[in-house]
Amino acid sequence: MLTKKQLELLSFINKRVQRDGVPPSFDEMKEALDLRSKSGIHRLITALEERGFIRRLAHRARAIEIVKLPDAMENSAGFTPQVINGDRPDQTPPQAQSVHATAIATLPIMGKIAAGVPIEALDDGSRDIGVPGQMLTSNDRHYALEVKGDSMIDAGINSGDVVVIRETMSAQNGDIVVAQIEGYEATLKRFHRNGDMIALEAANPAYETRMLPAGQVEVQGKLVGLIRTY
């Protein structure tokens, strides 16, 4: 037996998977269920997993296997269990392209970036990585960073991932940016400006938003892509 909220969340995830081929983000789940925080979504996800309706796949961001649905939902939806985000969808989305048909660019990995407590500023690049050319915009400079920490996991960014960054000194509210703090700390966070203050917001309820005077924060780039190896 599921509670009303558990049933609502399971239904929402199933509809999004059927429509898009991938599950919704925790932010989208929170908004759909009108919850105040993502911790409530974590509890609902855990409850659905404990009851055998879903299965979370380790080390894969936003990867959920829908194992079963309640009888009423299953009969109406024509449900077929499938693994999403990491499995091959039945149909290729119109925007998807074969890797072999996409030009590969080489970028320097400039060091590690903190997705957690800020660390010292970037190291010099010591190795390169190949990235799909479609991640990059012409006439702009790009570089890559290895993520260290778990503060951005709800944005699908795990420790050990490599993020692709477009160099820029400006950002819009909601952008995920490389921010340098007081000239020596570097961190990967979601950017929000409120007057003369900058909020650097984590995507993990275990971390508090950090509020800093605008003069102490320098945007050094904006997230444009992510590369994960298994």
Results as ranks from 00 to 15, higher is better:
S159T: 14
S159V: 10
S159F: 09
S159L: 07
G160C: 06
D161I: 06
V162N: 08
V162A: 07
V163L: 05
V164K: 04
V164N: 03
V164R: 02
I165N: 01
I165L: 01
I165R: 01
I165P: 00
I165D: 00
I165C: 00
E167Y: 09
E167G: 08
T168M: 03
T168R: 04
T168L: 06
M169A: 14
M169E: 12
M169H: 13
M169G: 15
M169D: 15
M169F: 10
S170H: 14
A171W: 03
A171E: 04
Q172Y: 11
Q172K: 11
N173W: 09
N173C: 11
N173G: 13
G174V: 11
G174P: 05
G174Q: 04
D175C: 10
D175S: 11
I176W: 08
I176T: 15
V177F: 00
V177M: 10
V177T: 09
V177P: 06
V178Y: 01
V178D: 00
V178M: 08
V178E: 05
V178R: 01
V178F: 01
V178A: 15
A179D: 06
Q180V: 13
Q180W: 02
Q180A: 09
Q180N: 12
Q180E: 15
Q180Y: 10
Q180R: 13
Q180I: 11
E182L: 13
E182I: 12
E182P: 05
G183I: 01
G183F: 02
G183C: 05
Y184G: 10
Y184A: 11
Y184Q: 14
E185D: 14
E185Q: 15
A186M: 09
T187Q: 00
T187W: 04
T187H: 00
L188P: 00
L188Q: 03
K189S: 09
K189A: 06
K189V: 06
R190C: 08
R190A: 07
R190E: 14
R190G: 03
R190T: 07
R190W: 02
R190V: 10
F191H: 05
F191Y: 15
H192D: 11
H192S: 12
H192Y: 15
R193G: 06
R193P: 08
